[in-house]
Amino acid sequence: MTSESAAHTPALADDFLPGPVLLLGAPGVGKGTQAQSLMADYRIPQISTGDILRDNIARGTELGKAAKGLMDQGQLVPDEIVNDMVGARLTQPDVEHGYILDGYPRTLGQAEWLDAHLSSTAVERPGGEVLPLVAINIRVDEQELLRRITGRRICPVCKHIYNIYSKPPKREGVCDFDGSQLQHRSDDTEAAFTERMKAYNSLTAPVIEHYCRQGRFRDVDGDQPVEQVTAAIESALKELRQAGA
């Protein structure tokens, strides 16, 4: 086996079913990177509410039409529509062994709806026992998150991402690969980060408390190399499933 193929071999047993997984974490903790690793290791899909919403609108489904009408009026899409879209997505065959939820459940109401929905439709173990959703929170010090966000610079051509504090380009403000001028996104500011953190904490705290009460939650230290964070997440998943979650 080559070192490259070994990197994509599941860290856990071949018969391990990750089941439904919610990755939590503040802006900048690396949820997207970790989701990609779990998808590769366990061959399970990442389910994003943003992707589901765009797909329903593009296909002109009844839910998509309802959502688009509200969005065109500048209104938020209510939980009922989002819940129904997620429920429809979870009937597709690629979720048989598990999936990674991205951006959902975002509120306590959504979490409670999802629990009720999964009680009859969730992934099952070989013996038929339902696998409930488990939540893994990637935790990184807020000051480090601020450095990650405000220091981020992106090449508009090749999309390579730099950080002026931890991964700067060889020449200030210039992409190493194509010489393009790097861009600083307008929402990668301290003020924007502060507002995003306030919103995240107010919405996520009740969700975390919900899964903690049910023994279906673990914290993972995200302030370490990517591969070690992945290993910690997979270890936490195995621990939760072995404990009966």
Rank of each mutant, 00 (worst) to 15 (best):
T2Y: 06
S3R: 08
S5I: 14
S5R: 14
A13R: 14
G19W: 00
L23Y: 01
A26I: 03
P27F: 02
A35V: 05
S37R: 13
M39N: 03
D41Y: 11
Y42I: 02
R43E: 13
S48R: 07
G50W: 04
R54M: 02
I57P: 08
E62W: 03
K65R: 13
G69Q: 11
Q75L: 10
M85A: 02
G87D: 00
L90S: 09
Q92E: 13
Q92S: 11
G98H: 00
I100L: 11
W113R: 04
L114H: 08
A116T: 10
G127V: 12
G128C: 06
A135D: 05
D141E: 12
L145Q: 01
L145E: 00
T150A: 12
C155F: 03
P156Y: 08
I161Y: 06
Y162S: 07
Y165V: 11
K167V: 12
P168N: 13
P169C: 02
K170M: 09
V174H: 04
G179T: 08
L182K: 00
Q183V: 00
D188E: 10
T189V: 09
T189M: 09
A192I: 05
F193Y: 07
F193G: 01
F193P: 01
E195Y: 06
S202E: 10
S202F: 04
L203D: 09
L203Y: 01
L203R: 05
A205Y: 05
V207L: 02
E209L: 11
Y211V: 03
R218C: 06
D219W: 10
D221Y: 11
Q224Y: 11
E234Y: 00
S235E: 07
A236C: 06
E239Y: 07
R241S: 07
R241Y: 08
